[in-house]
Design a protein around this nucleic acid. Structure first.
Length: 597
DNA sequence: GTAGGGTTAG
């Protein structure tokens, strides 16, 4: 089904290129045909390209139309010119520039521009102070947001509903729900600034960010009872959150409910839903939603196309994904950093690092589109191919481009060093990471521990495990799985068994992976009957074996020359609907060929 | 002229 759907998306890009496409009478000239499978057709209407006025012309006339700012450099130039003008433009003009830079999400630049305003004695007002509060919220500098909030009162101004909402959003971004609730209560208690639909929408988002969909829906119900009715944004927020948690049926129910209330969905609603169903592999439903969307004359945009590109790439259909990107360009929908990063990752997943590198360079040639995620994706591609030196080269290149490596970058490289056995380099990078102010997280420690275990450095692994425990990090089963596997690899099956038996006293339950590791370790140690006991035990303890478990134990029995038991297990595996993987098949083929001899 | 919703990486 997917193959058919994806093949036809590629066919769509052919239509875009060909004369046949241009000659098709049934389509509007701004439509793109996407045939998703034999029965479904989607007509993607792209917005007619707008005539963009020359930025330079507008910059020269800052007093008339609001100048269009497309990059930070433009903003600083316009600002400089405005500061030199006599009479000087009003504070509103300066605020407009700040607002436009905020749309570009260059928050540090706004703070810099705002400081210039202060030096030039351009007054504060509630508009520019609200922008500043918002900037510091997005820069995770809530302390400065609160200073700006204080300044509003100090200079005799009054915050409006937007200022309150901005502050609530800031607190929620920092996971400070109690303080957000405090501001909300202050609004309710006051006279002239009651919460509006954006205030409620912000709180709904806050619940969703913390994974509390139930509370988000409860608030939606409260809104329905009150004056401030939920709008499209509130519904979209919850629908997206449900989709992210794979609760697509609940999301679709809410979607129906929303339409019954005459709230029309938009491209954002459909992007969330289509992304949700694609992640579950429900291609037919994805196709149905796409068709429904276009039948409502809703234009797919760069977000929607990026979802499609990402889905194709994750399914290994990178050629088709590239076709979608080509189609976007032809239809005047500019792919962005996310689209290109998805494509790059698609190549990396197939080990085609050269092609990933080409996309990376293409992204670079498009201007300032490369970001930390682009670098991380490429670095990961090199690491997975054990090309750690090339990965490090890109890591060093990042800082030359003014980008700051994050925890994600370091974790990828630490894993890369572990995989090639360069533990000392990993340790050095780990120190460097902390010196640069990037905090190691749970995954960092898992990677380090795994690197040590897989490189026969068990005593250092045990030492690190002690440090992890001392840090009181929220230790979960993943850490134990790594350590138990390390012990098994080192032939210390007794210690592995002790650690396994001690799990419940730590409040942890073994998962399928834990059992698989133990079964493998026991088989390596020749303890196949105990491995079989573990297989029975996991079923009894409500952790049923999966295909991987059966493959592991079957290989173990064959390895230990207990072929008759292996045959029984193969039979059980097939009965349960699992099949032999490539490695087990090889074992079985070898076994049969030896029997034939 | 200021606020809430959708796409990418370990």
């Amino acid at each position: 089904m997917l193959k058919m759907m994806m093949r036809n998306i590629a066919a769509a890009s052919f239509y875009c290129n060909s004369r046949r496409w241009r000659g098709m009478p049934c389509l509007h000239s701004n439509s793109t045909l996407v045939v998703l499978d034999n029965n479904y057709f989607a007509f993607f209407h792209s917005q007619p390209s707008k005539q963009i006025k020359s930025t330079r012309t507008q910059l020269d006339q800052p007093g008339r139309d609001s100048p269009k700012i497309t990059n930070v450099e433009d903003a600083f130039n316009v600002f400089d010119r405005m500061l030199q003008m006599r009479p000087r433009p009003s504070v509103v003009r300066f605020n407009q520039i700040l607002g436009q830079v905020a749309k570009l999400k260059h928050y540090s630049a706004i703070i810099s521009l705002y400081n210039q305003m202060g030096v030039s004695r351009i007054g504060h007002d509630v508009y520019n102070l609200t922008i500043v509060i918002n900037c510091y919220c997005h820069l995770n500098q809530m302390g400065f947001s609160l200073s700006a909030w204080g300044k509003i009162f100090k200079v005799g101004l009054e915050p409006n509903v937007i200022t309150f909402n901005t502050l609530i959003s800031g607190y929620l971004l920092e996971n400070r729900a109690a303080e957000a609730a405090g501001i909300f209560n202050k609004m309710i208690a006051g006279d002239n600034c009651q919460p509006n639909v954006v205030t409620y929408g912000t709180l709904v988002k806050g619940f969703c960010m913390r994974g509390n969909n139930r509370a988000a829906i409860q608030l939606l119900r409260k809104m329905e009872e009150g004056i401030c009715k939920p709008d499209l944004v509130v519904y979209n927020t919850i629908i997206d959150s449900l989709c992210k948690d794979t609760l697509v049926d609940d999301a679709l129910n809410l979607f129906s409910e929303m339409m019954c209330k005459a709230i029309a969905p938009n491209v954002i609603t459909y992007t969330s839903l289509i992304n949700g169903v694609c992640k579950l592999g429900e291609w037919k439903e994805a196709t149905r939603l796409l068709n429904e969307m276009v039948s409502k004359n809703i234009f797919p945009n760069v977000f929607m196309f990026s979802v499609l590109v990402d889905t194709l790439c994750k399914e290994g259909m990178v050629v088709e994904a590239k076709g979608v990107v080509v189609m976007m360009i032809q239809r005047d929908i500019d792919p962005n950093a996310v689209t290109y990063t998805s494509l790059m990752d698609g190549y990396c997943l197939r080990g085609e690092i050269g092609k990933a590198q080409n996309v990376f360079e293409l992204t670079f040639s498009k201007g300032s589109m490369v970001n930390v995620v682009s670098y991380n994706t490429l670095i990961n591609g090199y690491c997975k191919l054990k090309k750690i030196d090339e990965a490090m080269m890109h890591f060093l290149d990042m800082s030359h481009k003014g980008l700051v490596a994050n925890t994600f970058t370091y974790n990828t490289l630490l894993d890369g060093f572990g995989k090639v056995g360069r533990i000392q380099d990993a340790q050095k990078l780990f120190s460097e990471m902390q010196a640069c102010g990037q905090l190691p997280n749970f995954r960092t420690y898992s990677i380090l521990l795994d690197g040590l275990c897989k490189n026969q450095q068990l005593s250092r692994a045990m030492q690190l495990f002690g440090e992890i425990e001392a840090k009181k990090l929220d230790i979960n089963i993943v850490i134990y799985n790594i350590l138990i596997e390390g012990l098994c690899i080192a032939g210390k099956i007794e210690s592995a068994r002790d650690l396994f038996c001690g799990l419940s006293s730590k409040g942890l339950r073994p998962d399928v992976r834990t059992y698989d590791i133990m079964i493998n370790g026991l088989c390596i140690a020749g303890l196949t009957s105990e491995a079989e006991k573990f297989l029975i035990q996991m079923e009894e303890k409500g952790c049923p074996p999966d295909g991987c478990t059966y493959n592991t134990i079957i290989r173990g029995f064959i390895h230990n020359k207990q072929t008759s038991m292996a045959m029984v297990l193969i039979q059980t595996m097939v009965e349960k609907g699992f099949s032999a993987d490539a490695s087990t098949t090889e074992f079985i083929v070898n076994l049969l060929s030896k029997d034939c001899l």
